[in-house]
Design a protein around this nucleic acid. Sequence first.
DNA 1: CATAACAATCGTAATATTGCAATGTAGCGC
DNA 2: GCGCTACATTGCAATATTACGATTGTTATG
Lengths: 110, 110
Amino acid sequence: MGVSKTELFTEQQNEIAVLAKALAHPARIAILQHLISARQCITGNLVDVIGLAQPTISQHLKELKASGLIKGSVEGNSVCYCIDPQRWEAVQNILGQLFSDYNSEHSCCS
Amino acid sequence: MGVSKTELFTEQQNEIAVLAKALAHPARIAILQHLISARQCITGNLVDVIGLAQPTISQHLKELKASGLIKGSVEGNSVCYCIDPQRWEAVQNILGQLFSDYNSEHSCCS
DNA sequence: CATAACAATCGTAATATTGCAATGTAGCGC
DNA sequence: GCGCTACATTGCAATATTACGATTGTTATG
């Protein structure tokens, strides 16, 4: 019914899904990649770079901040965003683990 | 308006977002983890393990198959699913690249 | 203090996702 | 063939997401 039955799954499975959801929009990938190459960026700048309206960018920034991947600090009358290094590494490990848990020696049923 | 403006973004950004979306549900994570540990599994078995109705599992399997992460082969009147090794590694690299592109030496605006 | 600049929030429309009952389809045993 | 089992597909209701105009803070700056 449009609502995920999170109670059926482990905390780890839900955490991975939530993290993946944070990455599941090209605008948020674009924001992250721009923060990676520019090191830091204010909202207005991201609005220009990405090409979506300001409220939309603000909304995506809010989701990225909620996932912990980025953090923002007020600088004068603008807000400066950047990657959160510790969280970035933690998420890298969580997702990396999922993939490295698979041993490709496994044979398939084909 | 509920529709992503994919035309604003690079093919790579859209690809990452689509892959992340495939992982953005705990049921699909649970399915993948079960396929990792059990090596292979038929649909009915997954229905029992996950605890969602059969049509719902079928739908999640369809999305995972569309992303290429798993493949299914018909065995008699049941269908056996497993991780696709090549695709698994490719996706691992695509997502891994995103995270490793970040150099944590970067300073933040805080 | 008025005003401009910047960004967050609110409200709303359009679309997507999730979940399941009902139904359809295909293989197997008889 | 007929019934049975396993799975996919369809159709629908409930909820979530995406996007943006309008509005509301918040912080300089004149």
